[in-house]
Design a binder for these strands. Sequence first.
DNA 1: TCTGGGGTCCTAGGACCC
DNA 2: TCTGGGGTCCTAGGACCC
Length: 424
Amino acid sequence: MSHYVLVDCNNFYVSCERVFNPWLEGRPVIVLSNNDGCVVARSQEAKQLGIAMGEPFFRIKDLCSCRKVVVYSSNYQLYGDLSERVMTVVASMTQNFQVYSIDEAFVWFPSTMSSQEVVDRCVALRRRIRQWVGIPTSVGIAPSKTLAKIATKLAKKSASGVVDLSCPSLRREVLKGVPIREVWGIGARLEAKCHGMGVQTAWDFCEKNTSLIRRHMGIVGERMLWELRGISCLPLEEEAPSKKSISCSRSFGKAVEDQGTLAEALSFHVASACEKLRQQNSCARAMCVYAMAVIDSSTGGRRCFGTTVSFPSPTNNTPDAIYRAKEALSTWFCPGQRYKKCGVIMIDVIPETSVDPDLFVEEPSSKRRHILKTVDALNERFGKNTIFYGAMGVGREWQMRCESRSRRYTTCWDELAVVMAKGQ
DNA sequence: TCTGGGGTCCTAGGACCC
DNA sequence: TCTGGGGTCCTAGGACCC
């Protein structure tokens, strides 16, 4: 039986902040979503204060100030960079691994390795991530990904930070104590369905008849069943597949009412989306351009405006896409609305290599492609938006709130950490 | 005043084809 | 009298994840 391992960074965003601000250790710390909307990461101390994941910030503002909770806006450049460093360490110590999210990686070890060898490797890996990057992790080991998820959850509460669920009898005891909602893939709806079938714990689920689960929960349910029984159905995906759609959107710091500002914000998102397309060597056949307006501030009622534009030929060309987005905007823009958010979604994304040249559309010359590559390279090297299109605007007053962002210590020359030598 | 952003997979049903 | 069998593609909606 081979071994699936999940390496999960503890309270990742909070841990990133603590790397550069050690005084945050032992204190309640939270990190907010974009636009300082809601809570997306909490330190252990903040969890103990009863602050829930996803809680809107304005509701706990008072609690935070009276309990001295340290509040950060999210700093994705910092988190993204530290995530890459963690993944580099994982890659250096393992053969087969999958980056699953910004703070998680699955690792696979062959059945020729004994459980003890796997545990030893995980302990070493965990120690090295902590020492080289400064991020604490929890590691779970099991015969399937779904069980490894459960093992990792237990590891968060264990002293060693590593939990091995390879032993079937141990697994049985553990699963009896795991509520079905905590199983990977069970959300609110499926939880209710499970309760309806008399399933309360992961173990209850394991004991159900396979065809019954198949009937009620489809192929997804059956896979979960086998995974929980220790038969792996979800393989390691080492190559990140290309995205089939790419979306860029943001809420505004304050409501926007004029077309010019909306056009700037949309151009900004189009530029990000095209950059992402080029990064994965893809083009989009079409693009959805939309904005949301508040129609009733008392209920938060919203109305969505938008259109889908088909490109004459699949593209990842920023200026062309900006032109089309502005054209689209003028078809649905409605004066007097208070827009709260806007964005674009690139759809029908295909590999650049499979774009057939169109006889009737002018081919983007190699010169134009070269310009885009150069822009991307400059922004990669000197920081996001070092150079950008005029259509994206300069002041960008529409940008979201991020009132308490920490410095981008590892990605911005102007924001490096400053170390003072102690005077004599 | 006030609630983020970015994705994936599966299924069912309709349209259409041979 | 009386209407097959097998398949694909597309879309909308549902559910979930971090």
